[in-house]
Simulated assay, not measured.
Amino acid sequence: MKLIQSHEVPSKLLDVILSAQKELVIVSPYVNLTYTKSVSNALVAARNRGVQIAFYIREDQNSAVSKEQVQSMGIMPRPIPNLHAKLYYNETAGILTSLNLLSSSIGNSIEIGAQLETPEELAELRRFVEQFIAPFDPESLPAISPSKPTSAAVPAPMSREEREFAEQEFGAILADYLASHVDRRCSIEGNPKHLSIRALGNTFSVNIEGYSSPKLIVQGILSSAEADRFPIKSAKHFRLQDFDYSVKRGGKGYYDQAQAVRKATLSAGTFNKLSYAEKKQLLPHIAEILTATRNFKDDYRN
């Protein structure tokens, strides 16, 4: 390992986030980046390019702000009791440091760190997370079976479609559906919580956000002029009663977006863990929102 000087720690952290292509593990007991946007913007960019992010924070009475901050970036926080370690790594690089993801720490505190230099060191760090942190993640804990099962009920046989929905990634199922019903040239990339869709000449995102009450959020890019027109003209096209519609303003280099938020919460925090019935229902809903966005944009041009 190589020692990182105090003034270099924030930039080395950004390097780890920005260079991530497949995985990113963030272990920071406390998070508050309200006054430091470079790190949060880098994390959102990593999420949007399909990096699978595991974000561990401390679970205690002071964790509400940390949870809210992580969720605001579209990432599911993983609360761990008694967490004090701080470390950050992707598939090829990593650092150990005293730094929490706090604006006060990044801008003002005297920190220290060490940069991993070999694949063996990275593998050792990964084993540490798998052995001492991940087992306490509620998402990874095995379900506890009742000690005295009441009966050995035989589950009903699954239909062919149910088996396909259970065995395939939701993104693949959605891609097939959209190719058949919306745009045969559509493409989808992403992970179990965040999908990026290219269809109908536009870019869309379909995300599950929220920790205790996960919600489906569908967004499509608008021009600034289209976003200005959205409040008074959107009702003509966006008619699904199961969703609330609004404009999400981008600013500072980000696009404005039409946003549809499903009113009812989902049963799980990832697409693949949703029930068959939920997956079945979401397919036409997502397709309709994509089509409505395209129609709204076309109507504006006319």
Rank of each mutant, 00 (worst) to 15 (best):
S72R: 01
S72V: 00
G74D: 02
M76A: 05
P77G: 07
R78W: 00
I80R: 03
L83W: 04
H84N: 14
A85Q: 13
K86T: 06
Y88L: 03
Y88R: 01
Y89I: 01
N90W: 00
T92L: 08
T92H: 15
A93L: 02
A93W: 08
A93C: 04
A93P: 04
A93Y: 11
G94N: 12
G94W: 03
G94K: 08
L96I: 07
L96C: 13
T97Y: 06
L101Y: 02
L102S: 04
L102N: 04
S103Q: 03
S103V: 07
S104P: 00
I106R: 02
N108D: 14
N108A: 12
N108I: 07
I110H: 11
I110W: 07
I110G: 05
I110A: 13
E111W: 09
E111M: 12
E111T: 06
I112G: 11
G113Y: 13
A114H: 13
L116E: 15
E117R: 05
T118V: 14
P119W: 15
E120R: 09
E121D: 14
E121R: 06
L122V: 11
A123Y: 13
E124G: 10
E124Q: 14
E124H: 13
L125C: 10
L125I: 14
R126F: 05
R127V: 00
V129H: 05
E130F: 06
I133G: 10
I133Q: 05
I133F: 09
I133M: 03
I133R: 05
A134Q: 09
A134W: 01
P135C: 02
D137G: 12
D137Y: 06
D137R: 09
D137K: 06
